[in-house]
Design a protein around this nucleic acid. Sequence first.
DNA 1: TTCGGACTCCCCCAAAAGGGGGAGCGTAGA
DNA 2: TCTACGCTCCCCCTTTTGGGGGAGTCCGAA
Lengths: 210, 210
Amino acid sequence: MSSTGSPIRILVVDDHPLLREGLRAMIDGQTDMTLIAEAEDGEHALQAFREHRPDITLMDVRMPTMGGIDAITAIRAEFPAARIIVLTTYEGDAQALRAIKAGASGYLLKNMLRKELVETIRSVHAGRRRISADIASEMAEHMADDELTARERDVLSQVAAGNANKEVAARLGISEETVKTHMKNVLTKLGAKDRTHAVVVALKRGIIDI
Amino acid sequence: MSSTGSPIRILVVDDHPLLREGLRAMIDGQTDMTLIAEAEDGEHALQAFREHRPDITLMDVRMPTMGGIDAITAIRAEFPAARIIVLTTYEGDAQALRAIKAGASGYLLKNMLRKELVETIRSVHAGRRRISADIASEMAEHMADDELTARERDVLSQVAAGNANKEVAARLGISEETVKTHMKNVLTKLGAKDRTHAVVVALKRGIIDI
DNA sequence: TTCGGACTCCCCCAAAAGGGGGAGCGTAGA
DNA sequence: TCTACGCTCCCCCTTTTGGGGGAGTCCGAA
């Protein structure tokens, strides 16, 4: 865009070497951007951020050792002005919401076009926020819904692992009646027809992981 | 490797532009390989194969319009000697098994190193087969298990959608008793504790999709 | 042709899940 | 302070699930 001024200094964080290579090629093709560092997980991302202080960080969410959400939280705790764009495959609206709450300024899907990515980088660098249309509309769909509480997610995760209410109760150190109460709330909140459906919906929406 | 002889002609099929760019960069860096075409889904892959007759096809499995497995089947039906390497994120052992049954000569995960990819390309070009160690060991784990039958997968997919046995029976036009029989078999074959667990296991292993 | 396997249907019965209700308790905000 | 909310527990009752058994048909491979 502007051929004058210093380029946007970018840090790329992704555990896929091939994707990093693709991003490098794309960034190299822009006169107003430069790739200054790469990291392959959240821990290295934090180190790289401290060392290089990038203008923009492109971050995947699914990575070994330390995931993207934790990395965003850690970076923003230390550098509140950090501008981070999440770049991921589809992970559900809840995942995106977590990223944004953690301080991400953008959320893009990996199947987007180059054009959209470079525009988002410039946009976020200028202080704006950018969320992929697909994700934004799905997040909007669930705006009105109550989110699951921490305990409800605990219970649902246990259920996803194949535990009966009695077993979940034993594992969490609560009564079976309490587990049933939580599951009733989960079914209502997720609009699920039964516990199996609830698990599937929660997986789709990125509320729980397996 | 060999600086003499004609280069290995490669077709890349993936719906992620960034990943295609990364592959292009990697292939361009090898003296004995050349990227001759790209496609973004299964249908275009078949067209591109007809037109270019690549030595090696690198193919993702998850794509819009026509998935990778169908594309492999279609290409191998027309060109039985086609050498296809699947390149994907982790999708479970059942997915890998389907790809191999469809005629893939290799199965790699996207988080592998460049070195492994170029070695696999040369290896497959020389007529060998190569499966990622992680996938191979997981496939081995389930060698002894009976696979689910088509009908069992149908039933399980309906269950994953939140249908009770009675509803599944109505949808598939069979009796509830038959659905229960299928579910009993599914639980046994997958080693699942209940239907919810069965759905989770099947999703993890790539036996059903959501 | 015979055999195996997929698919279908049936019985019985115990256990689990789900839907309705109510209620106490602690803590963090308004 | 009072209120809202998350977490906990309890009751009652119906429906669904799961585990055990058996058995018929049909199709394709040996």
